[in-house]
């Protein structure tokens, strides 16, 4: 436990040191507020503007989570469809890769064209951007399930769906949760991206507006909010992953000894 605590402490020191360095360098090199505000200024701005920022934070979280949930639903469905059949896996893979190689920024204008600016394109971007890693991970997890494990159920006369529920899906959970961590971060990026381009609400929009008004410290306050939210969302799914798929990492938390 002391080892883990030391690592935590060092991690905190690194973060603190980073901001301290930033602060000191800004003062020593006499950097203008308009180029790079000092962390203390950013935090002051954050404190003062927080009541105004709060609805935008909720807006961004809302778009991210709705898009994420939709994306997970679609991703799991597609992943199961593709992963349960080796043929489907081989056939669909090129299309999936092609689809995923499109920079998702490029789809925002299309969504704006179809649905106008606002919340809808933000949700859709968050959704589209997170589907692919989920599909790939679910499909890979299912397609790489050890035949030995499936044989155990086959000899018992299990149906295809019983094998899927009792072997395929549990076996895929570590892949799924690993992909969720990536997906939630991507969704967040997608939502902010869309807000930046086409919305009058959300943190992305706040940063865009602040930037055009030269409220540089507000822009950086937005960045800090994004970083904190990103870490919170990631940690939540990371925690969930450890709880649910501890068997894959031999996590002693869930093991009953």
């Amino acid at each position: 436990m002391t080892e883990a605590r030391r690592i935590k402490f060092m991690s905190f020191s690194l973060i603190f040191g980073f901001f301290l360095m930033w602060e000191v360098l800004c003062i020593v090199l006499n950097v203008s507020d308009l180029v790079l505000p000092r962390p203390t200024e950013i935090i002051a701005t954050l404190w003062v503007k927080f009541p105004i920022l709060w609805p935008h934070i909720l807006q961004t979280l809302y778009s991210t989570l709705i898009g994420f949930v939709l994306g997970v639903g679609i991703g799991v469905t597609l992943g199961v469809l593709v992963g349960t059949s080796r043929v489907a896996y081989a056939v669909a893979y090129p299309l999936l890769v092609g689809f995923s190689s499109i920079p998702k920024v490029a789809v925002v204008p299309i969504f704006v064209l179809w649905f106008g600016s606002g919340t809808t394109p933000a949700i859709l971007t968050a959704m589209v951007i997170c589907v692919f890693p989920i599909v790939v991970n679910i499909a890979t997890g299912l397609a790489t399930t050890e035949p030995d494990l499936e044989d155990v159920l086959k000899t018992l006369g299990a149906s295809k769906s019983e094998i899927l529920w009792n072997v395929g899906l549990p076996r895929t959970m570590p892949y799924f949760f690993a992909s969720l961590k990536v997906a939630i971060t991507l969704s967040f990026v997608g939502a902010v991206l869309s807000e930046t381009v086409a919305s009058n609400r959300g943190i992305g929009n706040v940063m865009m507006t602040a930037s055009s008004n030269f409220q540089v410290s507000l822009v950086f306050a937005g960045l800090i909010i994004l970083a904190v939210l990103g870490v919170v969302l990631y940690s939540f799914f990371s925690f969930l992953e450890r709880r649910v798929t501890g068997w894959a990492t031999r996590d002693t938390d869930i093991a009953i000894t």
């Binding site: 050890e146 030995d148 155990v152 159920l153 000899t155 018992l156 006369g157 299990a158 068997w247 009953i256």
Partner: peptide, 28 residues
């Protein structure tokens, strides 16, 4: 009704021994 023991124990790693042994009762 067939019971089969493979060369490798092939216990499902996400289930406890109890749940593993119980699996046939869930299927058969």
């Amino acid at each position: 009704r067939i019971g089969m023991a493979f060369q490798n124990p092939t216990m499902l790693p996400w289930l406890t021994i109890e749940q593993n042994v119980m699996m046939p009762l869930k299927i058969v």
